[in-house]
Every structure is written in C-alpha cells, then in structure tokens.
C-alpha cells in the first residue's frame, strides 16, 4: 500500500514519519499525478486556507474530491478535519473544503493559540494523550457518522466510511493508535 500525504503546507513530514513507522510506504502528494499513485491519503495539520488555496491553484481540488467519492481512504488531522467536512463555520468567507464527511466543523473552536492544550482522552475506547492546536471541533454530525472521541461534549474524532478525521495531532506524539486504526481498520486489504 502506498500512502500519500498531501504536502502543500503544514506538518506533512510528521505524518510521513508516522506512516513509515507503521510499516507503510509514504509519498508526498503535490500534483494530480502523485495522487493517482496512492492507495490512501493523509491530509496533515497546517493552515486549511493555505492548503485549499494551493490545491485549487495546482489542480488537485477536483481530483481529490473525485477520489474521495470513489472511496479512497482519507485521514485528516486538524486542518485535515476541516477539509473533510461538508460544512464549516468560522472559516474564511467562502472557504471551500474537499468534503466527504456529513458534519459541521467549527474552525479554531477551542480558541486561539493561548488556549491550545494537551489532554488525555479515549479514542475508540483506547486511552490516548492528544495535542490540540488552535483546534476545530465537530459541531454536529449526520447519521452515517461515527463519533470516536469526545472532549467536553464535543466530537473530536469521527469516521464516516473510509474517511477519518481528528481535531488533534497524533503525528506530534509517539502514540500511533490513530494511524494504526486508519491503516488497519479503514485501509485494510489495499
């Protein structure tokens, strides 16, 4: 399996390291030709406005949307969660997303950088130490969406079909539980 990591902006190197440490090959994705080679995609943390802007400029927006529609497994952390949401609030005016998960995500919902925090939580029943940076939360979800973690009553990890999204950054910690879940439960057999 080749795991693509969208490498337009953000902490894609950490996701590549996490992917490799889980025993998969990783490929930096910057063009539609790169995207065509991958069996799964990770959308990293970073600035969602910057990433979507570059995706549109370099003709990746439509190809990613259509790969998602065809069932490509995609995992997004933080900015990646925003970009997988069908609806966002508190975004830049007219900000687009790739979409795919039937949810509304509030950008920077936990506050500004001084409110960024680390916290212990349960992910799919497992204990996990999570890092939230200017993090979004999930405001509401459609009935196809499974909530995998919550913090203070807000969903912070969700799955719909082959799509997984977290408000937090498992790529910044040594615990590979989220990546393992993505590779073993969602990408399995690819």
């Amino acid at each position: 399996m080749i795991v693509g990591v969208l490498a337009l902006q953000g902490d894609f190197r950490e996701h590549i390291a996490a992917t490799v440490s889980c025993g998969h090959s990783a490929l930096e994705v910057r063009t539609a030709a790169d995207l065509a080679k991958v069996d799964a995609l990770v959308v990293p943390g970073g600035e969602s406005t910057t990433i979507i802007h570059l995706a549109e400029l370099f003709d990746l927006y439509a190809p990613i949307k259509s790969r998602i529609a065809e069932g490509l497994p995609v995992y997004g952390s933080c900015a990646g969660m925003i970009l997988l949401a069908d609806r966002i609030v508190d975004g830049k005016d007219g900000q687009k997303t790739f979409g795919g998960i039937d949810m509304t995500v509030r950008r920077n919902a936990f506050g500004r950088q001084v409110d960024s925090f680390e916290s212990d939580l349960k992910f799919n029943g497992q204990s996990l130490h999570a890092v939230f940076i200017r993090a979004p939360w999930v405001e509401e979800v459609g009935k196809e969406v499974q909530v995998l973690s919550e913090v203070a009553g807000h969903a912070v990890a969700v799955r719909q079909g082959n799509l997984l999204a977290t408000s937090f950054h498992p790529e910044l910690t040594a615990d590979m539980a989220v990546h393992t879940y993505f590779f073993d439960e969602i990408c399995k057999g690819r």
Partner: peptide
C-alpha cells in the same frame, strides 16, 4: 488538560511549516 506547554507551543510552529 494543560495549556501553554512546550509541545503545544512548538507544535503550533510545526503547523506553519511550508508556509
């Protein structure tokens, strides 16, 4: 929950990379 840790401060800069 802990705010203002070295990890969230340095992590914020990680999100700016490539920008």
């Amino acid at each position: 929950e802990a705010t203002g840790t070295a990890r969230v401060k340095r992590g914020m800069a990680e999100m700016l990379k490539g920008g």
